[in-house]
């Protein structure tokens, strides 16, 4: 079980079951998703237009993020085999 810290406000207690770094990663991912600065660039990378290549790369990176989330950020209550 994840250690529970004493908490003053109730709603806050919930978030401790999910990793905080996820919030930061999410904000970065959202910014990277809206890659306005690259939109007008016309070049091919590995045969793909650079904006398509960029988003494919971003999608692959997301798989790494989600994998880390599943391995390192799994909420404790889901570890219990049976929620009865």
């Amino acid at each position: 079980m994840q250690p529970r810290r004493p908490s003053s406000a109730r709603p806050d207690r919930e978030t401790k079951f999910y990793p905080r770094w996820l919030f930061v990663v999410l904000c970065v991912a959202l910014l990277l998703h809206l890659n306005y600065w690259l939109w007008g660039t016309d070049r091919l990378v590995l045969g793909l237009p650079i904006n398509l290549f960029y988003h494919v790369l971003l999608t692959l990176a997301l798989s790494v993020v989600m994998g880390t989330l599943a391995r390192r950020g799994w909420p404790a209550f889901l570890e219990d085999e049976d929620p009865e």
Partner: peptide, 25 residues
């Protein structure tokens, strides 16, 4: 089990590349 969700959470973006890249290109 809840653990069974780990595979889909990890591999969903990869699946998107496999299906959407050919379609769009």
């Amino acid at each position: 089990h809840a653990k069974s969700f780990k595979a889909i959470i990890t591999l969903y973006p990869l699946g998107i590349v496999v299906v959407w890249l050919p379609s769009v290109a």
